[in-house]
Write a protein that binds this DNA or RNA. Sequence first.
DNA 1: CTTTTATTTTAGGCAAAGCTAAAAATTATC
DNA 2: GATAATTTTTAGCTTTGCCTAAAATAAAAG
Lengths: 218, 218
Amino acid sequence: MKTHTESEENYIKALYHLGGEQPVSNGDLAQRVGAKGSSVTQAVKRLGQKDLVNVVPYKGVQLTPKGIRLAKSILRKHRLWETFLVDKLGFGWDEVHPLAEQLEHIQSEELVDRLFQFLGSPKHDPHGDPIPERDGQMPPVLGQPIGAFTAGAEIRIVRVEDAGSEFFDQLDTMNINLGNTYEIRTISAFDASVELGSPTGSFWLSQSMCANIYAVQS
Amino acid sequence: MKTHTESEENYIKALYHLGGEQPVSNGDLAQRVGAKGSSVTQAVKRLGQKDLVNVVPYKGVQLTPKGIRLAKSILRKHRLWETFLVDKLGFGWDEVHPLAEQLEHIQSEELVDRLFQFLGSPKHDPHGDPIPERDGQMPPVLGQPIGAFTAGAEIRIVRVEDAGSEFFDQLDTMNINLGNTYEIRTISAFDASVELGSPTGSFWLSQSMCANIYAVQS
DNA sequence: CTTTTATTTTAGGCAAAGCTAAAAATTATC
DNA sequence: GATAATTTTTAGCTTTGCCTAAAATAAAAG
């Protein structure tokens, strides 16, 4: 089992995030990792030599199966650590991302396995995103955007998009958390905002909020 | 709050380990960090520019107050992570060192504080070594070597030296753990080995084992 | 189907961090 | 106190990983 630098792992992660198994352009990758195009050209050349990506000059970069395996293992670590930080240490879900970006580079299969167990073999992280299994399998991506339901439906929040800290702040001030259940009261035909009802009252969610909150019928 | 590279932190840690506040020779430092002398000369020059050490060429390197603060904060993280790994994840005390060496470089005051709380504000790590406080204060270094007691004493194991994996294996096979209590039955005048007694029987410990096991009267 | 614009790659630099081999300084020995 | 042995530093090279500026290629516009 080879070991990789943090920079390499960051490129792999970015590639997986941007394109999954599909090719990604130099520019997009540069933007994502926060480097200049020329640095990216070099970096992906190195990754190519390690058989983690296929590079077609001027065309794009694509993860190899080996690269995809690595990407998933990093994502697994990232999401397990986020779960740890929220569930065990009491961090807010808006605070954990930068910390998990450091922790995801810790190298130890054993540690990951034990952490996974310690956390109760979770399938989803504190945002509701699926945690890749040990073997690379992905648990289902949960829920549909709130706007996709019809008035009268009973729903349970199961996932939120990472739409920036202001979004998370808004969730916090509105006291919206994973697991909360609501009734869909109204869906505005004018601006696609939604009225949610709970035992304690009702409130309106803007279209942009709704687009980043996912739920299932309950 | 500035941020340091892992390499820098490793040098600081090594300096603290070898000399504490006292100066350390280039050679000793090189040995400890596993680099050549020439690399060390460069490295300490960099550290000097950051005001973490004072360098007197050909004479030695010494931590500054700032360097000592950093060293203690790294040690604090190291020992807290070791505690986490043993207490929460069930690692053996012989396995945790290399992992903690990775985890100790994670940068976040908040994380350290929360981890500390989560672990129940421990004063000592799984080996019984003191965990530096937030403000740099050091809890007491516990116990005396087993050979320092007199026959008849009731003792409790409170600390073990990190004397390599074979030592830890031996502790494991003899089922010796922190917190265990014994009676000192005999101290050999011939080879300084010691006979310990417990409710379930008695056994002998070699002089070298004793030298690395620390206890208090109980 | 050229020309302009945008993207990507090359070329050349820089800093961190390691190395080896040679020079300089210190310490030990006679 | 002069010489030998050890330690430390300098000098010069390597790799990773980033940068800027210039050249090359691809895409868009006329």
